[in-house]
Design a protein around this nucleic acid. Structure first.
Length: 421
RNA sequence: GGGGGAAUGUCCCGAGCGGCAAAGGGGGCGGACUGUAAAUCCGCUGGCUAUGCCUUCGUAGGUUCGAGUCCUACUUCCCCCA
């Protein structure tokens, strides 16, 4: 743990500090000076393990956002097209399942677009650039690599790194391929220094070891001083890992997690987290956040709505955010059916024929199986047009249509409109 | 190389005399209470054309009316001896 710089002179570090982004840094004074001079070219790497990033990645994206916003330096987004083929062992007990090269490429293309929401890309100045480490890592020759890079790594030291040590201590398998991950990431750092003049690597706290390894390699290869800065691992006040919901992760890609659901996710933040999240996940001025933090009791709901709308606006745009806010207001506060609720289209003739209650919920995506719906009915969780269903043989029919839609609800929070077309 | 132990409900941990859709817990979901929060209490947490049928206990065979449970081989992991 490094001491926090009592009074950073760069806008970049000042903002990161007061908003709670900083977990560890290698040399705050050095970072501060480079930021002040606008030469803090910085990269964050993202592995392509899924078709979308999720909110766990948001912290580091926000840091790149502030880097650009404050003119501290140029953001470099590194796609891990190469490293994903190897698999990072950091912070996990088990080896990831190997992805095919095709899957990685698909994921990479699917992930890319989200960054332009938070940072501006371009050729010059502080406009961001995107790189892909497949470009250089896949061309490495094993023997040359060992001679030029491998000789700078001490296995003794590598064994002491958390990502490796924790695995070994728990008697968990660590394959040779994973053991190499940190070497590749370290090499990336030096390569990005060579290509773009990158001097800082940021990432989650679990990346500390990998980043510092890169700094060491840089010193031996003569890159000059490189820096590390990590953000905390996001957990909720009650200690749960953030971003897990019923359906899985909170994805940043709209097709996988709708703007409405995204708004709802933030709306349901625990009281104790609201202030912290406003600082991290919105760009509202600190004075405004301080105001919101003063709200007590049920008034905190107002702060949660601001959080939800601002966070959603950053990712999906102001319009989508306000539409989500409005839909929520109609649904939860006025108790009317908002026609902007998520909807699923169903052929009109199917509804005229009649659809069983269970299949209807499965088609709406509210349940995974008929059995789940039957059990939910027994739990009193199922409603059609806001009327609780108690009979499992209930049929959703044309008589349920209001303005061409039927409102299906699973519990009080999950609603989907079945739209006859 | 020799000896011993382990793999359980496709989220995780874990009990399981030959009759088991399989104890318990965590997590998740739902209900109540609230404020679309937390905490607490209660319920649910294999699938289906559903008083029945089908698929599940590392893999493949075998014994048996019947196997998660017994036998054999294989795979993977752990421990001890060399």
């Amino acid at each position: 743990m490094s001491a926090t710089l009592s009074s950073p002179s760069s806008a970049f570090l000042r903002i990161l500090t007061e908003r709670g982004f900083i977990h560890q840094a290698s040399d705050l004074a050095g970072i501060d000076a480079a930021a002040r001079e606008g030469r803090l070219t910085t990269y964050v790497g993202y592995d392509c393990t899924a078709p979308s990033l999720h909110i766990g990645h948001l912290l580091s994206i926000m840091m790149l956002h502030w880097l650009q916003e404050t003119g501290a330096g140029r953001p470099i987004v590194l796609m891990g097209g190469g490293t994903t083929r190897v698999g990072d062992p950091s912070g996990r007990d088990e080896t990831r399942k190997m992805l095919t090269v095709e899957q990685i490429e698909e994921n990479k293309n699917s992930i890319k677009e989200v960054f332009s929401r938070f940072i501006r890309f371009g050729e010059s100045g502080h406009l961001a650039a995107m790189a892909d480490n497949a470009e250089w890592l896949t061309k490495l020759n094993y023997i040359d690599m060992l001679r030029e890079i491998g000789r700078h790594f001490s296995v003794n030291r590598m064994l002491s790194m958390d990502s490796v040590r924790l695995r070994l201590e728990r008697d968990q398998e660590l394959s040779f391929i994973e053991f190499n991950y940190m070497i590749l990431q370290a090499y990336d750092f030096t390569e990005l220094h060579r290509r773009y003049g990158v001097v800082l690597q940021m990432g989650g706290s679990d990346q500390w070891g990998n980043i510092v390894t890169g700094i060491d390699l840089g010193r031996r290869l003569g890159t000059g001083q490189l820096y590390a800065l990590t953000c905390p691992l996001m957990t909720t006040a009650s200690g749960a890992k953030m971003g897990k919901t019923a359906s899985g992760a909170v994805w940043l890609k709209g097709e996988m997690f709708s703007p409405y659901d995204y708004w709802q996710f933030w709306r349901n933040t625990e009281d104790a987290d609201v202030g912290r999240f406003l600082k991290l996940f919105t760009t509202l001025p600190m004075e405004r956040i301080a105001e919101l933090e003063r709200l007590q009791g049920a008034e905190i709901n107002e702060a949660k709505k601001v959080l939800a709308t601002e966070a959603t606006a950053l990712l999906h745009g102001r319009e989508a955010a306000e539409s989500a806010a409005e839909t929520a207001q109609k649904t939860f506060e006025q108790g009317v059916t908002a026609d902007t609720l998520p909807s699923v289209e169903v052929p009109r003739e199917d509804i005229e024929t009649g659809i069983g209650i269970a299949p209807a919920f499965v088609r709406a995506g509210l349940a995974a199986s008929n059995g789940e719906v039957i059990r939910a009915i027994a739990n009193g969780a199922i409603s059609v047009n806001d009327a609780r269903v108690t009979d499992r043989s209930r049929i959703v029919a044309a008589s349920d249509l209001k303005d061409g839609v039927v409102k299906l609800s699973f519990g009080k929070k999950k609603h989907v409109l079945l739209r006859a077309v």
